[in-house]
Design a protein around this nucleic acid. Sequence first.
DNA 1: AGATTTTTATTGTCAGACAATGTTTAATGT
DNA 2: ACATTAAACATTGTCTGACAATAAAAATCT
Lengths: 229, 229
Amino acid sequence: MHQETRKPNADRPANELAYGALVESIISGRYAPGQRLREADLISELSVSRGPIREALRRLEAESLIRAEPHRGYVVRWLSREELSNTYDLLEVIGGLCARRATEVLHHDKAGRVALKAALTELKALSKDADIMTFVEASSRWRELLESLSRNQILPGVVAQLRRPLVQLQIRLMIRQRFVPEMIADYEKVTKTVLAGNPKKAEEAMRDHIRRAANLIATLPDNDFNTRA
Amino acid sequence: MHQETRKPNADRPANELAYGALVESIISGRYAPGQRLREADLISELSVSRGPIREALRRLEAESLIRAEPHRGYVVRWLSREELSNTYDLLEVIGGLCARRATEVLHHDKAGRVALKAALTELKALSKDADIMTFVEASSRWRELLESLSRNQILPGVVAQLRRPLVQLQIRLMIRQRFVPEMIADYEKVTKTVLAGNPKKAEEAMRDHIRRAANLIATLPDNDFNTRA
DNA sequence: AGATTTTTATTGTCAGACAATGTTTAATGT
DNA sequence: ACATTAAACATTGTCTGACAATAAAAATCT
């Protein structure tokens, strides 16, 4: 019985496919902030039926990547300047916790120290290539490594959720202005402080770094932000 | 045309109804942690069809109140001791931020100061009545007031999400042992410190309070926690 | 008993229909 | 012409029924 594969696409579950495609489209900026999402469009675009699409949309709503307007559909979420600042306030204290814990853990984790150094080396090597996206990805890997070293199973998810609405802004900033050297210096400083083994200082270094990033992003012009809501 | 109300229940959207009912059942403990949720059961229990139920489940999954097991359904999430500790680490730094910011804001917000004092008074009054649930609700109101005073639009949602999996534990703790006086003393101290106007001290007081709460919950016996995963 | 196949239960997906609601356009009254 | 109201339209929300895909349980064979 070697029939053709039928309508239900067997490669990947339709709901995950829809969810993944939507996340991709949103954080890449292909769906502009404020843009309305119509179920009918998504059906034809993704070739899955309403069920999985609606499930994916609810999921994205819960992660506050999109906002639901009853009987009107969903719109891609748009951060106001204030929300951005609020988000960074949270990221700052959470990042501080992450660095502090990682420092404590690394004290007796040689493999971790090696891995962290490697991530930094990779980051510095990439700073010469001009490609922004690969640099952003590498810096994400550095951050995620630090998060995993902090041995807090909840933290990475919280950080990811807080960061999602603002990665587009970060990328836009990097593309328009070349802050890569400053960022590299920051990553290097945090890494060294963490490896030095003083949790308090590591926490402070990470908080400084995040504050600096916040200040940089705040220099973006008004039309990158939601002024209405 | 005064026909009977048809199948589509017009009172409240079915998806919200399902979501609300499920949240209620989970955080109240009516659905025990680890319990499996079958769509068919939920359909007959809530009298809504699969669509809305599945949307609600996806939403709950995104909020990590339940965990999805592909083709096997969902189970009510169960915190391990480690996850509980991790969660409190996050709540501690976030709570500290909240208290610090609220202190700054209250410096020039008389109405806010009055409201905060009122919330504390209510809390102290309720401490005499034995009803645990109303006390827990009042303490939630106190905390939420402080969150709103902190003027961080993102913070309340993050805190709510982190707290959801552990409120049952909190309630269980309060019912088994009478820590209400200690808690009251804590709330009073934090409130006074916040009103005193020193952000640093307020932050520290709140962090101490949350750490104490974490230590109390950690005294619960093993069978309140998930030992396997 | 242990491994292999069949059965069964449940989730995952699709399609079509209609209800509920919000938006736009047309009709109406002044 | 203008504002108000009513009809038409578009889109989401819900229900139903059917079937596919998968995992767990039961039955079968060696």
